[in-house]
Amino acid sequence: MSAIAVSTTINGDEVEFLCQAEETLLDVLRERLGLTGAKEGCGTGDCGACSVMVDGRLVCACLVLGAEAEGRSIETIEGMANGDELHPLQTKFLEHAALQCGVCTPGFLVAAKALLDANPDPTEEEIRFWLAGNLCRCTGYDKIVRAVQDAAQELRGS
């Protein structure tokens, strides 16, 4: 089967790749482009470990085909920091010890950023329910919620 040529933008960089029709965006990111920050936790869109943004929309990369990236703008965890300067969400996850094994962390950060981009001042309950699509087996979530609250406050400059 012939491969599909795809032109897309990933974390602001123009990227071209070839992929098979059945390859998911997650496979392409991990296997072809070496962006292994997004993880396959379930492969069925239930755990959120592969969360990325496609044209500003939060998606599970395991449910999107690589070919669907054509002409779109993809954002992954690898693009969240500005060089060595961490995004406030990343800093707050460090400060609040909001991670343990770390597999869910990239997905949580991408999802949390999507929330704060759309709603800079979410309630605690809004945070908890927005992040309910991201599973974490280690932390019990408390520190994650606190880190997001703290980051939101910092981003608002209050």
């Binding site: 991990r30 962006l35 292994t36 920050g37 997004a38 993880k39 396959e40 992954t76 965890i77 690898e78 969240m80 920091a81 961490l86 990343q90 996850f93 460090l94 400060e95 010890a97 991670l99 343990q100 770390g102 597999v103 962390t105 990239p106 950060l109």
Partner: peptide
């Protein structure tokens, strides 16, 4: 209460697991 040693890698998606 120092952060987990790999926390800077985890928050940037650069910590390597076997599949990475």
């Amino acid at each position: 209460s120092l952060p987990h040693d790999a926390a800077p890698l985890h928050v940037t998606g650069t910590a390597r697991y076997v599949d990475d």
